[in-house]
Amino acid sequence: MSLAEKVYLKLREVPRGKVTTYKWLAEVAGSKGYRLVGQILKRNPDAPRTPCHRVVSSNGKIGGFGGERSGKRIEEKIRMLEQEGVEVEKGVIDLEQYGFDFKE
């Protein structure tokens, strides 16, 4: 199984109302390539079934979405997360409250 396939498979485990980080997702997929995970998600062939909007930076910041780091796509990511019950405060998510690190 390729790294991309592992990333997409594991990402599908993240439930509504939770987020994971590029780092956690890379680790659970067996990689240290956190940035590579971002590149893989940019090419997500199965959105929204594979919910790449639920992946954020390790510091809780929104990160990118669909290859963008600002603009309408980021606003769309925030809106999607808020519709799932995730609170976004000044572009940051509280990972203590909303983080899903695959150990749950």
Rank of each mutant, 00 (worst) to 15 (best):
T50K: 10
R54D: 14
V55R: 05
E75F: 05
E76W: 08
G63D: 02
V56Y: 01
E76L: 14
E87N: 07
K72Q: 08
K77V: 01
G63L: 02
V88F: 00
E82W: 06
I78P: 02
H53V: 00
N59F: 08
Q83A: 13
C52N: 08
V88P: 01
E87L: 13
R49C: 05
G71S: 06
E75I: 05
E82S: 10
S57N: 15
E76H: 06
K61M: 10
H53N: 12
K72F: 05
L81G: 04
D46P: 03
M80L: 15
I62P: 00
D46S: 14
V55A: 11
K77E: 00
R79P: 03
A47S: 09
V86S: 09
A47Y: 13
P51V: 03
V86F: 02
K61C: 07
G71Q: 02
E84H: 10
K72A: 06
G60W: 10
N59Q: 06
H53A: 01
R54M: 11
C52E: 09
L81T: 10
P51T: 12
G66M: 07
P51L: 11
M80P: 00
E82Q: 15
S70W: 10
K72E: 07
E89P: 04
N59K: 11
G67S: 12
S70T: 14
E87F: 06
L81H: 05
S58Y: 15
E84Q: 15
I74G: 05
I62K: 02
Q83H: 10
I74K: 03
V56I: 14
G85I: 12
S58L: 15
T50A: 13
C52R: 08
R73T: 05
G60S: 10
K77Y: 01
V86T: 14
V56R: 06
R73L: 08
R69I: 13
S70G: 06
G67C: 04
G66S: 03
G66V: 06
Q83E: 13
P51H: 07
G63T: 01
D46G: 09
A47H: 12
S70M: 09
G71M: 09
F65R: 00
M80G: 00
S70F: 06
Q83I: 07
G64D: 00
R79E: 12
R69C: 06
P48R: 08
E82P: 08
C52L: 08
I74M: 07
P48A: 13
R69P: 03
E68T: 03
K77C: 02
G71C: 07
T50F: 06
R54N: 03
I74W: 07
K61D: 11
G66E: 01
R79W: 08
I62R: 00
N59M: 12
K77S: 03
Q83C: 04
R54Y: 01
G60V: 11
K61V: 07
R69E: 10
E87G: 08
P48F: 13
G67D: 10
E84Y: 10
R49E: 15
T50S: 04
E68N: 09
M80W: 02
E68Q: 07
V55L: 11
I78Y: 00
